[in-house]
Amino acid sequence: MATTADYAQLPSLHTDYSLSADQVAAYRRNGHILLKQVATRDEIQAYEPIIAGVVREHDYNTKPVAERDTYGRAFIQIGNLWQMNEGAKRFVMARRFAKIAAELMGVQGVRIYHDQALFKEPGGGHTPWHQDQVYWPLDTPNTVTLWMPLVPVSEEVGSMTFVDGSQTLGYMSRQAISDESHKTLGSFIEGKQLPKTNYGAMAAGDATFHAGWTLHSAPGNPTDTMREVMTIIYIADGVRIIEPDSKARENDMKGWFPGLAPGDVAASALNPLVYKD
């Protein structure tokens, strides 16, 4: 069993990742961006076994993939790994990742909303079209998700597909991730002929960043290997909680902002400040 001393030997992930003005502008225009080697090969080799181990420990799926609903087929989903394992905590709290999030959004500080491991099993299904922020009771567009493969992702699995500029459309539907959201939002995207981007194959340690309102989906996994992805959701420091207008947002408020209420600053013990300029 790993000890605190063992985790102290892990790469710090503290050094800066240089963003260009063009990259920041592209993110703000499109609502998404791919950044290469946000984590190095050595860093991924150190953290991947830890994160994968936590996922295996907390994966309580008992049904075969084919017998689950659309959401259940999409991925194994484990949240707040940073509370479960000291090594995972070092990864989630990484200053490097948080500084990128702050610079892309143009804010001085960011907090963790929560993290999620999203492991798409061999034969796993597609992730329907959706906007993340339909789940989040937050009074701000300043949210961003880091999506980082911990293993190489082939062209046939690929990155997520993003609708360019869709973050400017705001709150489009209360539909949670489902067959219905895929049909409704897919019809809207095709009807408006909105431009889409898929970044294709990604190396372990590459990362996409996308805004909370950016429409996106992901293909299934036709390969015989697990698509291991770690995500971290950041929110601007100082944003406030709004009155939940759906059961999903009510559940998120209770789960990720314990002890807080609408109107409060979104800064519970589960939302540590991870970067401040």
Rank of each mutant, 00 (worst) to 15 (best):
W129C: 07
F162S: 03
D179V: 02
T161K: 10
Y113V: 11
E180Q: 07
D132G: 14
E103I: 01
L169F: 15
G109L: 03
R174L: 06
M148F: 09
V134P: 01
Y113K: 04
E180R: 05
V107G: 01
A117P: 01
Y71C: 00
Y113C: 10
I112H: 05
F91N: 00
M148C: 15
Q175V: 02
R111E: 06
H114S: 04
T145E: 00
W136C: 03
S178G: 07
S159K: 07
V92K: 00
V107F: 04
A88D: 05
D132K: 05
P141C: 00
R174T: 10
V144F: 02
H126E: 13
I78W: 06
M84T: 06
Q83L: 15
G87L: 11
V107A: 02
R96W: 02
A176M: 12
G170I: 13
I177Y: 02
A94C: 02
W129L: 10
F162V: 03
Q167P: 10
G79Q: 15
L138F: 08
L169P: 04
G125L: 06
I78M: 09
N142F: 10
E156W: 01
K89H: 13
S181G: 01
L104D: 08
M84N: 08
R68M: 14
F119H: 14
D179P: 00
M172T: 10
W82C: 05
I100R: 08
P149V: 07
Y171Q: 15
A102F: 10
L118C: 06
F162G: 03
A102V: 08
R90A: 13
P128I: 08
T140F: 09
T70M: 12
V92W: 02
G170M: 13
K89S: 13
H126I: 11
S159R: 09
P141V: 09
E103K: 14
R111T: 08
S159D: 06
Q108K: 14
P122Q: 11
L169R: 15
F75H: 14
I78G: 07
S154E: 14
Q77D: 13
I177W: 04
Y171H: 15
N85S: 14
R68G: 02
H182M: 00
G106S: 05
P122N: 12
Y71N: 03
P122T: 11
H182Q: 04
K89R: 15
D69F: 04
M148W: 09
I177S: 12
E86P: 07
V107W: 06
D139P: 00
H126M: 14
T143F: 07
R174M: 08
T168I: 04
A94R: 02
G109C: 03
W129D: 06
T161S: 12
K99I: 00
I112Q: 08
L104Q: 05
K99Y: 01
